[in-house]
Each structure stands twice: as structure tokens, then as C-alpha cells.
Amino acid sequence: MATIISIINYKGGTGKTTTALNFGAALAKKRKKVLLLDFDSQCNLTLSKGIREPEKHIGNVLIRKASVEDSMLKLANFHLVPSTHNLLDYEFNISNEPGREFIAKEVLAEVKDKFDYIIIDCPPSLGLLSINSLVAADYFIVPMQTENFAFIGLDSILNATEKVKMRMNPNLELAGILMAKFTPRTKFSKAVISNIMADERLKDKLFDSYVRQDISLMESPAFGQTVFEYAPRSRGARDYRNFANEFLKKYGKKEKKN
């Protein structure tokens, strides 16, 4: 059964898509069966693999016109259900449906046994799509930069996830906070980290590994590649590899020995 992970932050530009793509690719390199879902109408995850205006997309899955299995594209190392620029229309379409928060959970149940990890790249909002991802997820990861608005974004997400946990998904757990585009030496970074560590509920939730600023992470999606395909020896590749190792160590399922 797949572990479903939602990559979420209320603020845009915190490294959600970069994390979804390269964390997914890092897991796939470890021979895990990975499915990525693009829940953002900006389609950044979809575009980062060079896919433009796909016929099959998550919108049709959400309105139950197509299944996840029919809508996923097989890429080199993993599968991807792309997004569409009209995704907000589809979101509006389901906004009056009873149990609308549970649609993603329902549709993903159909493919859960085919993958090890299902990773959802969320939009930078707390709308119906983000809530759907949290209701379906086992874990959520919050990528953030050490800056003011990302810190407020983290706070908003934690508030929202508490409610989702209480009302709709008691199994939801914060896997951790991942520092992206991280510059550890500044006073501001130290203050952000120190505030997170000072909160009893969060002090064990900061991943030891972090992702440094790296040009390869910026360039690779422009060429439709993951950082491992584009620059396998780059800092970005190393950082995401370390992060995937740490995640698997903490939350990975034990492999069966034959």
C-alpha cells in the first residue's frame, strides 16, 4: 500500500514543486514505485517534465470522468498525473458536491496498491484541492525558506492541518519541515529555526537535511528534467538524495527480505 505525502505550504515559491519533483525522483532512484500528482493550476510540476496542455489530467479525475490509472503518464522513473490551467473550473465543479473533501482519498484508493509512494504537489492556497490532498494523505511535508512570509505560511498550514486532523483525517501526520533555498548563517535563519525548535510540538519535526540554493535546481525544470537527470553531481541532487534517505529512515516501510 502506498504512503501518500502532501507537499504543502500556504505561501508560493517555497520550493513545493521542486521538492515534489526531486524528492519523488530520489525515491524512484531507490527503486520505489512513485506516483506524482499535480494539484496546482499553474501546472509547474507538469511543465517541469516538459508536458504542455495534456489531454489527460487531474481535473477529469476529480470530476470522475477519468480514473487515476487512465490519466497518469509513465515517465522515465515515475508516473505523473498532470494538471491543467483550467483546474480551478474543475475545483468549482466539485465545490458543491457532498463529501467534496474526500474525493482525492476516494480516487487514490484505486491505485494505492500499485505504488510505494504517492506525492501530491499542492497549490499555494488552502482551498478545496489542498484540503483534499490533506484528507487523502498519511503525511505532509512543509518546504519553506527562512523568511517571514514562509514562516507565517507554515503557521497557517499547521492551523489548517490541526482542523483536518480533528474533523476528517485523524491519521494525518506532519512528516517534517524541510528548509529549502537555505542559507544557515544569517541571523534571520537562526531566528526562524530557533522559533521552530522552541515549540514543543515542532522541535522534532525539522528535517536534519536541508536543500541549499543551487542553480541546477532552477535550470533543470526548464529542460524538462529532474535535478538527477540534469546535474546528478550538483548540490541540489546531493541535498534531495540526503533528504530522501532521511525520510526513508524515519518513515520508510521495512523491505521484505526474500
Binding site: L158, K187, I196, A198, D199, E200
Partner: peptide, 25 residues
Amino acid sequence: KRKISDIKSALLSNTSFIKNTEKEK
């Protein structure tokens, strides 16, 4: 020039979930 403690309190002035529970304790 700001001290880390100033930045920390400025950051916490905008949050409702994240709190300095160590301080509270």
C-alpha cells in the same frame, strides 16, 4: 542592527499556532 531575540519575537507576533512553548514552560 537587530538581535536574534528581536527577530524571534517579531516573527512570533504574526503566528497563532507556533509559540515559544519553552518560554511558557
